[in-house]
Design a protein around this nucleic acid. Structure first.
Lengths: 352, 352
DNA sequence: CTGAAAGCGCTTACAG
DNA sequence: CTGAAAGCGCTTACAG
C-alpha cells in the first residue's frame, strides 16, 4: 500500500513531492542502495571513485537520511538520553553542557528531559526515552523504585548514575562522595572550634544526593561527639528567598548555632544576605557555608565558603562511560573529587 | 536476512531473547497486529473486550513499542526539537521548563539542543534534529543564513522563532519586542532626567535579540535627541565578573554617564556590585538597569531595576504554536509583553 | 569492492 | 469492529 502516488526507482515524479530518499540517490548515482549506505556509514569500504560520485549526488539532491529508518534497520539510534531533576541549577547545568560536548565528539545526540525531582515522572520519562530508542541513559542519583530498576534491566539498556558514587552499585556511578564532601566541611568547621551546628538542607525527598549529604554531616558530627538538634535541621528548595526565610528560622532556634551549613548555593546566598539584614556579622558571630560553587558564591561582596564539585567532569565522564558501555568496553564508574573552598563567610567560632 | 535465529510469528524462541514486539502481543492475545496497534493508538475504535484483553497482554509481556518503527510507518515521531543558545540562562531556562510542560500535555517529547551562540553549530544541530525526525522545531531568534533558511523550507518542517517578534517573519514569532522593551527603559530613564547614557550590551554577534535591544536603545535615545558615545557602548557575555570589569571601563570613560543599561541580569548584578566597590552610590550618583528579571535582581540588598519578559509564556506559547502548525491549524505567532520593573538602582539624574 | 534482497517493527488503507 | 498484507526508508549478511 504505497503512500506515494507512483512507484519504482524513478517513478515518484508524479503527484506530491519526490521526497528524496536513499533510493533516489542510488538511482541517480547509478549504484545500489547498499553502496549509498556504505558511503555514508563506512566510507572506507567503498572505492574512492564511487564515494565521490555518491557524495556529489547526496549533496546535489540534498538528501537527509531518515533516522527512524536507520534506527529500525540498525537497531541503534545514536542518541543518549539524560534525565535531570532540573536543567538550570548550577551543577546540573555545567554537567549538561559538558555531557553534550562529550557526546557530540562521538557523534551522539543528547536527548534531555527534566523530572522535577519527581520519581514517577522520572520513570515515565525513562520509558519514553527508551521507546524513542536511546542507546543509553544518564540518570541522576542511584535510588529508584523496584519497578523502575526492573524496567531498566529488562530493557538491557546501559546507564550510569551521575552525581553519586557507590562502588557496589549495579550501574557505574560518576559523581562525588556526597557524604564525604559534607564530612570534610564539618571537619573544617570543627577545626575552627565550632560545636553548635545547624543545617539548611536541600529537600531530601527523591534526592539521594541531598540525603547523603545530610547523613554525611550527621555522621561527621557524631564522630566529633557532636549533634544537630532537630530544630536546627531544616529543608528548603533552590532559591535565595527560601534561604532567607529558613535562616530566620534557624536564628530563632535555641541554642543559636555558630556554624550553618546550607545544602546548595542559592540557599547559602539567601542565608548570607539575610544574616546581613539581621545585623549578624560573618564570620565573627556566625559562620555560613554552602554547597556547589556557582559564580555567585565568589562574586558577592562577602565570598561564601562552599564545597566545589567538578561538575563538568561529572558530565564528561558520565558521557564517556555510557559510550564505553555501548562499545562493550569495561565501564568502571568514577568518583569525582570535591573540595572545601574556604572563603570569607567562615572563621573561628565566637568565644562564649 | 533475518537477524534473529528464527522466523515466523512464534519462532523467535530459539536463540537470544524473544524481544517482545507487537507481533508477540498480537499472537498471545490472539488478535491481528492491526488490532494491537489500534488499541494503543486509537483505542476508541476497538471493542471494549478486545481492548481490555490486549492491554492485559501488553502489560503482562511488558511490551515497549519501538518508536523508530512507529515513526517510520506513521511518518511522525511525536517529538519536537528546540535549539537554544544556552540552557541555563534565566529567561531560557524558564522558557524551556514551560515548553516541556506544554509539550508533555500534548504527548510530545522535547528534544533539546544547545548551540552556544554559534550559527554553524545551530544549523548542524537543526540538521541532526530533523534527521532524527522531529515533527517541529522551536528556534531562538529569527536571523539565519540563507542555506539554513533554505534547509528549513526544503524540509517543510514547521518551526517558530522564539524570543523575537516580527509580524512579517516567514515563521510565526513568539517573543517580546526587544527594541520596544529597551525603548521603554530609555523613556523611563529620560523621564527621570537622564541625558548621559551608557550600555553594557550582551554580545550581539549571532544574537539578533541583543542586537535589536541595542538598536532599540539607540533609536529611543535619538527620539529624545540623545546619543551614546562609542566609548560608552560595550559588549559582554553573561557573567557577574564581566559586568564588574565592563563597569570599570564605563566608569573610566568621559563623559561619565548617569544612566547605565545592561543587556542581561548577570551583567547588571556585576555592574551594581562593582559600583558599590567603587564607592558610587546608587541611584544618587548613577542609575543602573538590567534586562531579564531573575531572582537575583530582586533579592540582592539593592534590588535592581530591570525589564521583565514573561518567559514562561514564551515557552508555553511557542510549544502551542508548533503543535497548532502540526495539526494544521492557523498559527499566528504572538508578541509577549515586557515591562520595566523600577527598583532601587534607578532614580532621578544627579544635578550637575 | 559491489549488488540483490530480506528484514527491522510498526501503521494503515482496503476489504469484509 | 477486525484482519491480511503492503509499505515506511534504511542496513547488512551473503554471494560474487
Amino acid at each position: 500500500m504505497k503512500r506515494n502516488g507512483a512507484k519504482g526507482a524513478f517513478g515518484t515524479a508524479a503527484a506530491g513531492k519526490p521526497r528524496v530518499g536513499l533510493r533516489q540517490v542510488a538511482a541517480v548515482a547509478g549504484v545500489s542502495t547498499a553502496t549509498v549506505s556504505r558511503v555514508v556509514n563506512r566510507p572506507e569500504t567503498v572505492s574512492e571513485a564511487l564515494r565521490i560520485r555518491v557524495n556529489m549526488v547526496i549533496e546535489q539532491l540534498g538528501w537527509v537520511p531518515n533516522a527512524a529508518a536507520r534506527a529500525l534497520a540498525s537497531n541503534s539510534t545514536g542518541a543518549i538520553g539524560a534525565i535531570f531533576p532540573a536543567l538550570a541549577l548550577g551543577d546540573f547545568a555545567r554537567a549538561i553542557d559538558a555531557m553534550q560536548d562529550a557526546l557530540a565528539a562521538h557523534n551522539y545526540l543528547l536527548l534531555l528531559a527534566r523530572s522535577q525531582y519527581d520519581a514517577d515522572q522520572e520513570f515515565s520519562l525513562a520509558r519514553k526515552l527508551v521507546e524513542r530508542g536511546v542507546d543509553g541513559l544518564v540518570l541522576v542519583g542511584g535510588t529508584r523504585s523496584e519497578a523502575y530498576d526492573a524496567f531498566l534491566s529488562r530493557m538491557e539498556i546501559p546507564y550510569v548514575n551521575a552525581f553519586v558514587f557507590d562502588e557496589n552499585s549495579r550501574a557505574p556511578c560518576v559523581g562525588p562522595d556526597n557524604a564525604g564532601a559534607m564530612a570534610d566541611m564539618v571537619d573544617y568547621l570543627v577545626s575552627l572550634g565550632h560545636t553548635k551546628f545547624a543545617m539548611i538542607a536541600q529537600t531530601t525527598r527523591n534526592n539521594d544526593r541531598a540525603a547523603a549529604r545530610r547523613e554525611g554531616l550527621r555522621d561527621a558530627l557524631a564522630r566529633h561527639g557532636l549533634a544537630i538538634p532537630p530544630q536546627s535541621m531544616v529543608e528548603g528548595e533552590w532559591s535565595i528567598a527560601e534561604g532567607r526565610k529558613l535562616f530566620r528560622r534557624i536564628l530563632a532556634s535555641t541554642p543559636r548555632p555558630t556554624a550553618l551549613i546550607c545544602g546548595n548555593s542559592m540557599l547559602a546566598v539567601g542565608a548570607v544576605l539575610e544574616a546581613a539584614s539581621a545585623g549578624i556579622d560573618l564570620p565573627s558571630q556566625m559562620s555560613i557555608a554552602g554547597y556547589d560553587d556557582s559564580e555567585l558564591m565568589s562574586e558577592l561582596p562577602l565570598p561564601i565558603t562552599t564545597v566545589r564539585v567538578d561538575s563538568d567532569e561529572v558530565g564528561r565522564v558520565a558521557a564517556d562511560t555510557v559510550i564505553a558501555m555501548l562499545q562493550g568496553r569495561k565501564a568502571e564508574g568514577r568518583r569525582i573529587l570535591s573540595k572545601v573552598i574556604a572563603r570569607a563567610t567562615t572563621g573561628p567560632a565566637p568565644h562564649n
